[in-house]
Computed example of a mutant assay.
Amino acid sequence: MSTIMRIRAITFDLDDTLWPIAPVMLRAEQRLDNWLHAHCPRAAAVYPIAAMRVLRDRIADENPQLAHDFSAQRRLSLQQALLPHGYHDDHVEGAFAAFYAERNRVECYADTLPALERLSAHYPLAVITNGNADLHATGIAPHFRFAVHASTFGSAKPAVEIFHAACERLGFAPDEVLHVGDDPELDVIGAHRAGLRSAWLQRGTISWSEASRQSAVQPDWIVRSLAKLTDLLAPPARVGVH
């Protein structure tokens, strides 16, 4: 039986797989800065965008127990930025809401939505993500059965357990599930260790050996677009000759 025939479900990473994350975060940081200037000007003066970035990185380094929860890291950063300047928890939540709304305003790659539409007609689809995007807020939730978020699961990719949790919810053995993602360590090597099939989405020019630091693990597929993966997994029906 071929690899394709064994695949019964597909899981996806989100950031830099279905959409580019860098422009999203730049807009979210700018939206947060605008909100702070409007509602918390004393804190905004001390924490412009670059300083807020440094604070958020420091909070992440000082709180390894929150490594799987980017929203918690962001809220803690906002607490440390706002509370010493006389602002309160409602300001923290308002600032986070402004940031988070923009964080979910994503622009999918051109190949994303057509691929999800075709693949969801053939396979149950799910998400495994270390990020904090909300599927409903991004508008792509109808294509997926569910999402496993590291923040609510309690551990992040490449942990074996988060992949197995998705497989259990899908109702299939790990070797019947294909995971698709852009990150060699988190997505491909993590999926391999958990017993899943894997597809590395090579959106850049760097080779697999370079990207994976010459890991012995090899993805089942290396594809440059989701359109190519879709052609492999869900080829269009052939029109019969009459």
Results as ranks from 00 to 15, higher is better:
198 S>F: 03
192 H>R: 13
106 V>Q: 05
142 P>T: 11
43 A>D: 06
199 A>S: 14
53 R>P: 00
131 G>S: 10
124 P>W: 01
94 G>C: 08
128 I>M: 04
194 A>F: 00
237 A>I: 05
130 N>A: 10
68 H>F: 09
59 I>P: 00
79 Q>L: 10
117 E>G: 12
113 L>W: 02
111 D>F: 11
51 A>M: 14
9 A>I: 06
109 Y>Q: 09
110 A>H: 12
240 G>M: 08
57 D>H: 13
52 M>F: 15
170 L>M: 09
188 V>W: 02
159 A>L: 06
84 P>Q: 11
81 A>N: 06
104 N>Y: 07
10 I>C: 03
69 D>G: 04
52 M>A: 13
70 F>G: 10
134 D>R: 10
2 S>N: 12
94 G>T: 01
106 V>L: 08
181 G>A: 08
197 R>A: 13
138 T>D: 02
4 I>L: 12
227 A>K: 05
72 A>N: 08
33 D>R: 02
35 W>M: 08
209 S>K: 11
102 E>R: 10
5 M>N: 14
180 V>C: 02
66 L>T: 08
32 L>A: 07
16 D>S: 09
155 S>C: 15
17 T>M: 07
76 L>N: 01
14 L>P: 00
169 R>N: 07
30 Q>A: 14
141 A>S: 14
61 D>M: 09
207 S>L: 07
185 E>R: 14
234 A>D: 06
143 H>I: 01
210 E>T: 14
96 F>S: 09
240 G>F: 05
47 Y>P: 04
91 H>N: 13
128 I>D: 05
227 A>V: 05
30 Q>K: 09
79 Q>V: 06
63 N>S: 15
142 P>N: 12
213 R>F: 06
218 Q>S: 12
32 L>Y: 01
148 V>F: 01
111 D>N: 13
168 E>N: 05
37 H>N: 13
99 F>I: 03
